[in-house]
Simulated scan of single mutants.
Amino acid sequence: MAFCLLTIIVVTFGLLSSFGSSFDPNPFQDFCVAATDSNTAVFVNGKICKDPKLATADDFFVTGLNVSGNPLPGLGSFVNLVDINRLAGLNTLGISLIRIDFAPYGLIPPHTHPRGTEIIVVLEGTLYVGFLAPDTSNPLKTKSFTKILNKGDVFVFPQGLIHFQYNIGDTNAIVFGALNSQNAGLIVVGSELFGTNPPLVDDVLSKAFQLDKKMVKQLQGLFS
């Protein structure tokens, strides 16, 4: 009886830990190329596998990281991301790749990746980067970890923590990075708070940031 009870407890905690995990699980097969048929889509951080017999080398190949990506309006930065939405062969493999180009004084604003740790290497330029983490000596405060990076330097941003990259030079900068998720997610602090749809109640933002409601409205108009 005791053995059965112990078995039930172990299995239950195992299931709970697997359901509560936000990062990509280890794959159960060599590969699982994402099916592109929209009718097979599921609302999880992954896609249904297509028949392995139909997989080709092209499922694991993508081109285009030799150029800058999509511009972030008004920020002077350009993001070229290779994740599950662009490369079907990444499905279940728990990894993605990113290239970021910066104009002089370009910025990747404070943001988080809820499902992935990010590591970057600077190929060109000089960047001021950092992330925020709870202060273990005072849980009511936040500690910043910042560094100036030059060509060849590497920096890591732990999963889920707010971080940023800023080109402090008067020349262009280029960064390559990797994330340990096929779809790490993205929450941009400013635009998510002031540009949500539907918008947050004015009182929440006014009290949280100590702003009058007129300023809140202006920021909501800017980010929307």
Rank of each mutant, 00 (worst) to 15 (best):
P109A: 11
P109M: 10
P109C: 09
P110F: 06
P110C: 10
H111A: 04
H111I: 00
H111R: 00
H113M: 05
E118F: 00
E118S: 01
E118M: 00
I119L: 09
V122D: 13
V122I: 15
V122C: 13
L123K: 05
L127S: 01
Y128E: 14
Y128Q: 14
V129L: 09
F131T: 01
L132K: 05
L132N: 09
P134T: 01
P134H: 04
D135V: 01
T136A: 12
T136G: 08
N138K: 13
L140M: 07
T142E: 10
T142F: 10
K143P: 01
T146S: 14
T146Y: 08
K147R: 14
K147P: 04
L149P: 01
N150P: 05
N150M: 11
N150W: 06
N150L: 11
N150H: 14
K151V: 13
K151G: 07
G152M: 04
G152I: 00
G152Q: 01
D153Y: 03
V154K: 15
F155S: 05
V156K: 15
V156D: 07
V156W: 07
F157D: 06
P158K: 09
P158Y: 10
P158C: 13
Q159E: 14
G160Y: 06
L161W: 02
L161Y: 03
I162N: 07
F164C: 12
F164G: 08
Y166H: 07
I168F: 09
G169R: 08
N172C: 06
A173Y: 02
A173F: 04
A173V: 04
A173S: 14
V175N: 05
F176Y: 15
F176M: 14
F176D: 08
F176P: 02
G177K: 00
G177L: 03
A178S: 14
A178W: 04
L179K: 02
N180V: 07
N180T: 11
S181W: 01
Q182V: 01
Q182Y: 03
Q182F: 03
G185I: 02
G185D: 11
G185M: 09
L186P: 03
L186I: 08
I187K: 12
I187F: 13
V188Y: 07
V189L: 15
V189D: 09
G190T: 08
S191E: 11
S191M: 08
L193H: 05
F194I: 04
G195A: 10
